[in-house]
Nucleic acid binder design. Structure first.
Lengths: 294, 294
DNA sequence: TATTGGTCATAGACACGGTCTATAGCTCCT
DNA sequence: AGGAGCTATAGACCGTGTCTATGACCAATA
């Protein structure tokens, strides 16, 4: 026995009470005065209580009307706030963008985009969630991030992946091993030098390990470090040969503090891509960000 | 550019979010599932934001949907409270009844009705506002009371008056003046005794003063008191002859502590009536109370 | 006291849109 | 593979909210 529909009437009631006039309420609501009059009458019938005193200069709330108004006023204010908030979300004046990925990708790949995005939409809070590729995928599936940025390839039917950029990993060394400049090394030759690898089970490390295995070699690092920054720093200081992403050391390569060591086999490039949940709506902020990156 | 109407959709949104299922929401709202589906879609178009993730086991709020829900939930809860409150007001489980009048009328005339009313509708708060007749009328016009109980006649085009009971005022004395029992006094004879009158500009006092004036006498009290109780008490203790409403001293007359002094002119009866504002809606509580009194 | 300009109420017609039924598409589970 | 959920879509219909036109009323003017 719902007899619902009252909600619309409450809005009319709210404005009528607020303006103290059905005519004025009609203007505020872009309706005609008879419509408002009719709506109020209907509401009064439904609640079974007279809500307004009518007189020649407008309307005034009855005792019971005042009680109703005290509730409805709050309710309508909340709705107005909600609508403002929604507009802000749509216009990207407010909201948040949650991205998952590795710190190195954030720092060396996403940073300029994040900066641009933040300048353009300062109201959007950025949440960067650090994690390995499988962690990022699970964050995505749990709805804890809006999009993930990881190394390809990813095969997951639930995910929608767009490959954005191709990165080339390579071995680099510092001045200490200047003798290797210009040479093309074989795997065996390279393994005679101390090798520095990323310590975590990252995509990059797995890829290079597999590449060596394919040729019958077991690549064991002499040093393992926990961040790309240390990988670079150790190589510069001559502690060994680091396996890094070329694009992440472009500055060092240019200034000469590091140089690339060429190998006689080709290291396959790795792709970095963004992934979102397939068949799930994507937030306006995430859409905008992906457009910027593309 | 209002594009209004959203209010109804918010209710659907609220239930859909609350139930986590459009089908369940439809049941709760006594609608069909397609209607709810359509409503949600429409709301999403209007706010320009996707609000739900749809999947095989129902729906779940998106990040933005959650934000909207946090507002709308409060709003809907307030509306529900408002509707409950209105039902309570209509059923007289709640609310208030504000009556204006003189203390003596409250005590001697209205008290039994007030008791009955309070027993029958314990949820209604009773506000008794004390004042002279003109004060009560202004309270009524200011909307500070729902109804007034005063002595008649009242002539005011803005008021609607119903006369409920007829009271007879009379002179009474105590044992000290036992010699007057059974006698019929003239005005002159009566004025030889000390007369006790109500001190305020009450209807009763004005009426008796005018009656004496009509016969060429000026009735000046030897004692003036401020309440009907004192009027009675002074007479009982033999301080003089009091002019009181007979119905208010019925107990004393019966037990013999007071007796009535008959006058050779008839004191016109006075009517007590209830008045409300003409052409103004009257609260359910006030209507009910007037019915009880009538 | 008649006039004017404001208020709200009523009547009746119209059209928009909310709701329905029927059906399809999808996912999960057995 | 089939069934049992769920939501989405299509199209028709009827209800109702809105409109215009008008009336009734009041208050403040002249």
């Amino acid at each position: 026995m719902s007899m619902t529909n009252n909600d619309e009437l409450y809005k009319v009631f709210y404005w009528a009470a607020k303006m103290g006039s059905l005519t004025q309420a009609a203007k505020a609501l872009y309706l005609t005065q008879p419509s408002v009059s009719h709506a109020i009458k209907q509401l009064e019938e439904r609640v079974g209580v007279t809500l307004f005193y009518r007189n020649a200069k407008g309307v005034a709330l009855t005792q019971e009307g005042k009680i109703l108004f005290s509730y409805i006023e709050q309710s309508q204010i909340l709705i107005n706030l909600a609508e403002e908030k929604m507009v802000a979300l749509k216009n990207l004046d407010s909201g948040e963008l949650r991205i998952g990925g590795s710190d190195s990708l954030f720092k060396h790949y996403l940073l300029p985009f994040l900066e641009d995005f933040h300048i353009q939409y300062p109201g959007i809070k950025l949440h960067l969630k650090h994690g390995t590729t499988p962690e990022v995928i699970s964050y995505l599936k749990d709805g804890r991030i809006d999009l993930g940025v990881v190394r390809m390839p990813i095969v997951d039917s639930l995910l929608e992946v767009t490959e954005n950029i191709q990165l080339q990993d390579c071995f680099v060394a510092g001045e200490r091993y200047a003798e290797l400049k210009g040479q093309v090394l074989s795997m065996e030759q390279l393994m005679e030098y101390p090798v520095i690898l990323f310590s975590r089970n990252s995509r990059v490390r797995m890829a290079i390990t597999e590449l060596f295995e394919k040729y019958g070699h077991e690549l064991k690092p002499d040093i393992e470090v926990g961040s790309v920054d240390l990988l670079i720093e150790f190589a510069r200081r001559g502690l060994g040969i680091s396996f890094v992403t070329r694009e992440f050391v472009s500055k060092e390569l240019k200034e000469g503090s590091l140089f690339e060591i060429e190998l006689d086999v080709e290291v396959p490039p790795s792709n970095v891509g963004m992934m979102i949940m397939r068949n799930m709506p994507i937030s306006t902020a995430a859409t905008k960000f992906m457009e910027m990156v593309r």
